[in-house]
Amino acid sequence: MKSLTSFTSCAGRNLSAFALVAVLAGCTSQAALDARSPDLTFDLPDNYQAVYARTLTSIRRCWPVENFASSSEFIQSDLFNELGYAEINRGRADLMSTSAVAKIKISRAGRGSRVEVTAPFLEAHPAQKDWLVYWMKGGQKCRKIGEGAPPPL
């Protein structure tokens, strides 16, 4: 059985609108995602552990995973206190393979934190990027269908 941390291909056909956008625009292998330069990088004044906790909470609450008969989505998160960073990975798995959709790395940067988001679909869908940034900065509202930009913080 493959580990969920070793993604190999893009599968999955029954998808929500957001998952369909992510898969069609950016489903890739984990190795390719790791080798790719971040699509978005910014600094926050808050501790990386606090940014990680609120981002993970908002992603789980507002960007829920979906499960289908042939495949399922997952969120894998790890906090590495001794190394000074955390990661949140979102992907899809089916009977034969797993695939990466997005990777968020939150690192210690002085007294604050540096956030690096690698998600190929962000280039074509700026509203999703705006919502991810909104959640990382502490926003609590979830996106509704058809809603554009997030509210101001």
Rank of each mutant, 00 (worst) to 15 (best):
D43I: 01
T8H: 04
S71F: 05
C27E: 01
I59R: 13
S3N: 10
S72V: 00
S16H: 02
F7G: 04
R54N: 15
K105T: 15
L83G: 04
P45M: 02
L20G: 13
F68M: 09
D46A: 15
Q76T: 07
A31Q: 12
A93L: 02
P38K: 12
G91S: 00
G84L: 04
L83D: 11
I88D: 02
I88R: 02
R13E: 09
A35Q: 06
R60H: 09
D34L: 08
F80A: 14
S99K: 02
N47F: 11
N47G: 12
A102H: 00
T5H: 09
S16G: 04
D43K: 13
L44T: 10
V65A: 07
W63A: 13
N89W: 08
W63S: 14
D34C: 03
K103P: 01
S6D: 15
R90D: 00
G91C: 01
I59W: 13
T5D: 14
T98L: 02
A50T: 15
F18A: 12
F7E: 05
T55Y: 10
D78T: 15
R90P: 00
L20T: 05
R54E: 07
L44F: 04
D39M: 04
D34Q: 10
A31M: 09
I59G: 13
Q49E: 15
A69T: 13
S58C: 07
L24I: 00
L15S: 00
S37R: 10
R90G: 02
L83A: 11
A17I: 08
R36M: 10
N14W: 03
C10L: 04
C10I: 03
R54V: 08
K2P: 14
V65N: 11
F18T: 10
I104R: 05
F68I: 06
T57V: 11
I59V: 14
R36C: 04
L24V: 01
V51C: 14
V101Q: 03
S71H: 14
L79T: 12
D94W: 00
F74V: 03
A31G: 09
V23I: 07
F18M: 09
A35C: 01
S97C: 10
Q76L: 08
Y52M: 11
N89E: 06
L56R: 10
V101R: 01
T57Y: 14
A50Y: 13
S72F: 01
S99E: 07
D39P: 04
I75C: 08
D94T: 00
F42P: 02
E82A: 14
L95D: 07
L79I: 10
T41N: 05
E82G: 12
L20N: 12
S29C: 05
S70L: 08
S97E: 12
S97A: 14
T55I: 06
T57H: 15
V65L: 00
V101D: 01
R61K: 12
V21D: 09
A53D: 13
K105W: 11
L79C: 13
M96E: 11
S99G: 14
S37E: 11
A53G: 07
L20E: 12
S71Y: 10
P64Y: 05
A11I: 01
L79F: 10
